[in-house]
Nucleic acid binder design. Structure first.
Lengths: 230, 230
DNA sequence: GCAGACATTCGTGTCGACAATCTTGGAAGG
DNA sequence: CCTTCCAAGATTGTCGACACGAATGTCTGC
């Protein structure tokens, strides 16, 4: 348990606790809606309430926990409706980031991204098309494009504000990509458009890609209006 | 000085300090890039370092201050480049919010928004077209549309993450709208499209509106590449 | 006169304790 | 039996103090 692959070397204790707690929440070790009691967590992470409080506040900014004054912090409650809202927002933000990336991305970054997709393909082949795992951090295709947009605002919104929330949903709803090869091909088309510096096409392809995932989610959950899956 | 029109009734001291400090920063009472020393501010606001620390962390999430570990917090440094990035992002987000608002906004909200525009027109007439002030909070035209989108994610990104930053830029760069009547007319066209439930048109008009402001900013600052105005 | 090392001062990071508030459990009354 | 009120417990909010690290100014040597 707690395979802390990334020790998260933050110079401050509060930062380390935040990263650890975030990973635990994303992994679903704390049930959505459950209370996060400061004394208990402080003891759990072997620290004082001060840094832990700061960690929780930092996670609130990322929408992973909800704080109500004088009442405490709860793990964010997930709903299909909000997940769809996230994808709806991602569609326009990532489309925009993709258009900009096509104009500004360096050739070496483009090559590196192609290499990344090759490794993804190898993973798919190795796992018999079972899953096309989205890697975390810099390994993520979408992550890199957001960074390459050159627009710090949109990069932060995507990577800091929406990214972690999405990972949490993936874990909670067991959202394994149900069409790994199709997704990989779409990714290849997108990077091709970027390589050709065709921003317009890159944006269209990215939006279609995100919308496709959104549609599959919408279809998968069918009529569950706002239900909290699981 | 300190015309604290909104006493910001937050149940916690940290929240009140955050709102006060945020208002002060937005008003430019602390120069961009200047250090925010916790002991000094704590004494200034008549509180302890604990709540003040929390307030600063909360402002970091809104990009109003930048924190470097073991070094301290500084008021965010502004640059024309970032301002343009903000508007670039706003264009797609507000365009999307506007399209959704056209589909979902209640008739009463539409009527209320029209009344708001009428009051804006009165203000313009009273001040001889001197300024078309963007009101704060719910009074803001863009603010209301974002809320009316029904997409909580995009509403939060716009209202919580980008909104305050933009107000700070307005103060710092003295960005008074230089075409109040034109802006008002564009707002009227947008609300008309929403009233007709024409989401596609509403999105186009909003994007054009935001882009127009962005262009005027770009033109105004001319060749200042990344300079920190003022 | 200037560069570099050192000591001092300041500020941040962390901790433990007290006070204010909310929540939970139970008892009294309808 | 249900509702309402009250009290005990627990939890959050706030405070002051200590330890660690960074930044500054000084002094010595060249």
């Amino acid at each position: 348990m707690s395979a802390a692959a990334l020790p998260s070397a933050s110079p401050t204790l509060a930062g380390r606790v935040r990263d650890l707690l975030q990973a635990a929440i994303v992994r679903g070790e704390y049930a959505p809606g459950s209370k996060l009691k400061e004394p208990e967590l402080a003891r759990q992470y072997g620290t004082s309430r001060g840094p832990l409080r700061e960690a929780i506040r930092g996670l609130e900014a990322r929408r992973l926990v909800e704080i109500t004054p004088h009442s405490g912090a709860r793990v964010a409650r997930l709903s299909v409706a909000e997940l769809l809202d996230i994808y709806e927002t991602r569609e326009v933000l990532e489309g925009m980031a993709c258009r900009l990336a096509a104009e500004r991305m360096t050739q070496s970054s483009i090559d590196a991204l192609k290499v990344l997709l090759d490794s993804h393909e190898a993973h798919i082949a190795a796992s018999e098309g079972r899953a096309y795992f989205q890697r975390e951090g810099d390994d993520d295709f979408h992550f890199r494009i957001a960074k390459a947009s050159g627009n710090g605002i949109v990069a932060k919104l995507l990577c800091d504000d929406l990214y972690h929330l999405m990972r949490m949903y993936r874990y909670k709803f067991s959202l394994r990509p149900d069409r790994p090869k199709a997704a990989l091909n779409e990714h290849r088309r997108i990077i091709d458009a970027i390589a050709e510096r065709d921003g317009e096409l890159a944006e269209i392809l990215m939006r279609r890609h995100v919308r496709g995932v959104r549609n599959s989610i919408e279809q998968h959950f069918g009529e569950h209006e706002k239900g909290e899956a699981k």
